[in-house]
C-alpha cells in the first residue's frame, strides 16, 4: 500500500503531493462556496481532513507539499490572494501528520486510525501555531489576538473535522487499496 521510507522523495511523492494539493485547493474552494457555519468565528474546512489523510497515507513530504500548494491554490481560487505564512502553516500541518505514515500498517485497524488522528491533531497545533504567531509579523497583530482570535478557532475547527472525517477516509482507502492489490 505504501512505500514505508518516511522521508523518501520520488515520483510517488511528487504525484501524490500534487494530487493532495489539487484536492485541498478544490475542497477549500468548495467550502467557501458552501460554508459550514459554526459558533463564533470558528469555521470548518472539511478539506483539512483530506490533507491529514494524504499526510498519513503518503508521508511528510506529500503532506508538506499538499498543504502549502493546496492552501495557496484554495486562496487563489477564492480570490483571497497569497498568505505565505498560512500556506506554510498548512504545509507544516500536513508534514507533522505525515509522520504517522511509518506507524500505520492497516488503515482499517482502530489503533492505526487513532495514531493517524493523533498525529493529525499534533500537526494542526504546530501548523496553526506557526501561522498565528507569524501573523504578528505580517499582519501586525498582538499575541492575544494571535492566540485567541486566530489560533484557537483554527485549531478547534480543524480538530473537529479531522476527528470525524479522517477515520472515514482511512477505512474507504483500505477498501480501495485492497481492491487494487497495491
Amino acid at each position: 500500500m505504501n512505500d514505508k521510507s518516511t522521508w523518501a522523495f520520488g515520483t510517488r511523492q511528487v504525484v501524490y503531493g500534487a494530487i493532495g494539493a489539487a484536492l485541498y485547493g478544490v475542497f477549500s474552494w468548495a467550502t467557501n462556496i458552501f460554508p459550514l457555519p459554526a459558533a463564533g468565528n470558528v469555521t470548518f474546512r472539511p478539506a483539512v481532513a483530506v490533507l491529514i489523510f494524504f499526510g498519513a497515507a503518503y508521508g511528510p513530504w506529500v503532506g508538506l507539499l499538499a498543504g502549502f500548494i493546496g492552501n495557496t491554490l484554495g486562496d487563489a481560487l477564492s480570490g483571497w490572494g497569497f498568505y505565505w505564512n498560512w500556506s506554510l502553516g498548512n504545509g507544516l500541518m500536513g508534514m507533522v501528520a505525515g509522520l504517522a505514515m511509518a506507524a500505520i500498517k492497516d488503515f482499517r485497524a482502530q489503533a492505526d486510525i487513532i495514531k493517524a488522528v493523533g498525529w493529525g491533531l499534533a500537526g494542526i497545533v504546530v501548523g496553526m501555531l506557526f501561522a498565528s504567531l507569524t501573523e504578528m509579523i505580517t499582519g501586525g497583530i498582538d499575541l492575544n489576538t494571535a492566540l485567541i482570535g486566530y489560533f484557537t478557532p483554527a485549531v478547534i475547527g480543524n480538530a473537529v473535522v479531522t476527528i470525524i472525517l479522517v477515520p472515514i477516509l482511512m477505512i474507504a482507502f483500505a477498501a480501495v487499496a485492497a481492491g487494487r492489490g497495491r
Binding site: Y16, A49, F53, I164, R180, R182
Partner: peptide, 23 residues
Amino acid sequence: LQRLAPLIIPVVMQSTVTGEEVI
C-alpha cells in the same frame, strides 16, 4: 460533517487510483 462524506470520499478515492496510473 459525516454527511459530507458522500461528496468527499468518491473524489478522493478516485484520485488515489488516478495517482497510481500517473506514477
